[in-house]
């Protein structure tokens, strides 16, 4: 993982943990209810199970989540899907599908001042199940087809954090991050190597999954919330053939308060 990104994620998590004194109404600040997220972005992958070549292309994403909060804590259950029908390396393409099921617990750790306003901070553990599948489209020579594919999965214990900065009436800004600490990883590896293990315990150093996002929120009404912003996701594994997948996404989230 690049140094700037590591620093950014570390700051998101550590600032949240290190600051703030007071409990706040988490349900209100984080937006209790059912949320639907749609996104469009850019995906770049380097997967040495296939080759050292980089593939990149447009990525569509969808998410459904449910957040329930009280005065000082919240829990969130979410399902994410993202996919691309054609990431490319020159005139070769591949199909990618990624899915995740995650459960976050967020606890208020207080607030701290920023630019003359209060920033409310939440932090907590997460559980995350992530699947990555890539179907290669290479060659159709003779009368046999080339249908190589690659697969990775992570069952992770994560840490997640959210910072909320209320702005003027109806508007607020928030940033959140989630980072896997310890995972049970699975990966399609060389099936001709009898010593290979397809499942291994991987640490944050050898198998990383995470995301960070920055959103602008607008309370449309007492029922609807609207958020828009940028989301960055990463999946990296060096335990087997090296895999690095990263995506930039512009996202739009609609929340129905409950």
């Amino acid at each position: 993982m690049s140094k700037p990104l590591s620093i950014f994620i570390a700051i998101c998590v550590s600032v949240t943990i290190a600051t703030a004194q007071y409990s706040q109404n988490a349900g209100n600040l984080l937006g209790s209810g059912i949320s639907i997220r749609g996104g469009l972005g850019h995906l770049a992958i380097k997967d040495q199970y296939i080759s050292e070549e980089k593939y990149s292309g447009t990525l569509g994403s969808f998410s459904l989540s449910w957040l329930q909060g009280d005065s000082s804590s919240a829990s969130r259950l979410g399902f994410d899907y993202s996919g691309s029908s054609a990431i490319r390396n020159n005139n070769v393409s591949a199909q990618v599908a990624q899915a995740a099921l995650n459960l976050d617990w967020l606890r208020s750790v207080g607030k701290f001042p920023l630019l003359g306003r209060d920033v409310f901070a939440y932090v907590g553990p997460s559980a995350d199940c992530f699947l990555h599948y890539r179907q290669q489209r290479i060659a159709n020579g003779g009368n046999a087809s080339f249908s190589a594919y690659s697969f990775a999965m992570f069952l992770s214990l994560d840490v997640n954090s959210t910072l909320v900065l209320p702005l003027s009436s109806g508007f607020s800004a928030e940033t959140s991050a989630r980072l896997s600490l310890l995972s049970m990883g699975g990966r399609l590896a060389d099936m001709h190597d009898s010593n290979v293990k397809f499942f291994k315990l991987v640490s944050v150093l050898s198998g990383l999954r995470g995301h960070t996002e920055i959103l602008l929120r607008y309370d449309l009404s007492d029922i609807f919330l609207l958020k828009a912003g940028y989301r960055f996701e990463i999946c990296q594994s060096s335990t087997w053939s090296y895999l690095l997948s990263a995506s930039d996404n512009l996202v739009l989230i609609v929340t129905v308060r409950m």
Binding site: M1, S2, P4, L5, G41, H42, L43, A44, I45, K46, S51, E52, E53, K54, S56, N89, I214, L216, G229, Y230, F232, I234, L244, S245, A246, S247, D248, L250
Partner: peptide, 18 residues
């Protein structure tokens, strides 16, 4: 926000082909 989008983090992180 624009910095993040314009920077194209994913391309920067993944880097060029071998």
């Amino acid at each position: 926000f624009l910095c993040f989008v314009v920077a194209g983090c994913s391309e920067m992180v993944v880097g060029p082909s071998g």
